[in-house]
């Protein structure tokens, strides 16, 4: 793997300066925004520059579902596991998506095309069951529609 460019992380540190402990979450969010994930080299550099122990950065990063330490696929598929979607049959949607992609939630396809996640309610319960791909919502999904939806993303 090629070395990761530290530049964007330094910009983030500049933007947020002076950094204190309370900034850890916005800091990690900004880094993930730039890189798409939290690269190990970057976290070590940030730890040094901001004088926040790397153990703390990792402790926080692994606690919150939003952060990931590995690169995501080009598209993120999120199947809602909220209550409204649950009572309208989200399990069979999840199974159809799992099968179509051949991976489980939390994993990325080998060709890096998709990362699969679950989410606890997208706040669009009137569309239940809901699947979101990147920023697009798909409502009242049935298993037969899954392949067609995913085919739209290269």
């Amino acid at each position: 793997m090629s070395a990761v460019d530290i530049g964007p992380a330094l910009d983030v540190l500049d933007d947020l300066a002076p950094i204190n402990h309370g900034h850890v979450i916005p800091l990690l969010q900004a880094i993930q925004d730039r890189y798409g994930y939290l690269p190990h080299e970057v976290l070590l550099e940030v730890s040094e520059q901001a004088r926040i122990p790397a153990s703390h950065l990792y402790g926080v990063a692994t606690f919150y579902a939003q952060f990931h330490l590995e690169e995501h696929g080009r598209h993120t598929v999120r199947v809602c596991k909220g209550t409204a979607c649950h009572v309208r049959g989200r399990q069979i949607i999840q199974e159809a998506v799992d099968e179509e992609l051949g991976i489980k939630p939390g994993q990325t396809t080998e060709d890096r095309r998709f990362t699969l996640e679950t989410v606890a309610c997208l706040g669009t319960c009137f569309l239940a069951p809901v699947v979101m791909v990147d920023h697009d919502y798909y409502g009242t999904v049935n298993p037969d529609k899954v392949a067609e939806i995913l085919a739209g993303y290269e």
Binding site: N20, H21, G22, H23, V24, I25, P26, L28, Q29, G59, V60, F63, Y64, A65, Q66, F67, A120
Partner: peptide, 25 residues
């Protein structure tokens, strides 16, 4: 404005405060 980071427990007030302080929620 602070954005949450995907942890249900952070809706609980003391966990939210921990999160605002830069800790695990």
């Amino acid at each position: 404005v602070r954005e949450g980071a995907g942890a249900f427990v952070c809706g609980e007030e003391t966990a939210m405060i921990a999160s605002l302080e830069g800790e695990r929620g």
